[in-house]
């Protein structure tokens, strides 16, 4: 994937880190995810992401659960890093 191209949070693999580029959705959604720390420029770490079902991301000292459709509203800069050993599982 090209650097700088857009990727959705639900596409981020477990253990992967990426910067948030943008949050899309209705005002209630935007204000909720932003207040939980999902603001543009923030680094997010994917903790749990199975093919289906909700996922768990970690940012600003907080574990946040997002439904899969909701996670699709959070866009990332596609700068995914290689998973490191400690983050497996």
């Amino acid at each position: 994937m090209e650097v700088g191209s857009s990727m959705r949070l639900d596409e981020l693999q477990p253990g992967g880190r990426a910067l948030i580029s943008e949050v899309r959705g209705k005002p209630l959604f935007i204000s909720r995810v932003c207040a939980l720390g999902f603001t543009p420029g923030t680094e997010v770490l994917m903790v749990r992401n199975h093919r289906r079902g909700p996922l768990i991301a970690y940012l600003r000292d907080t574990l946040v659960a997002l439904g899969r459709p909701e996670a699709a509203g959070v866009r990332l800069l596609a700068r995914q890093q290689r998973p490191v050993a400690e983050e497996r599982g």
Binding site: G25, K26, L28, F29, R32, V33, L36, P54, I56, T62, L63, V64, A65, L66, G67, P69, E70
Partner: peptide, 12 residues
């Protein structure tokens, strides 16, 4: 009306 789906802190 509106809802924001599942956006939920998992508290320690």
């Amino acid at each position: 009306g509106e809802d924001c789906g599942l956006v939920m802190e998992l508290p320690p």
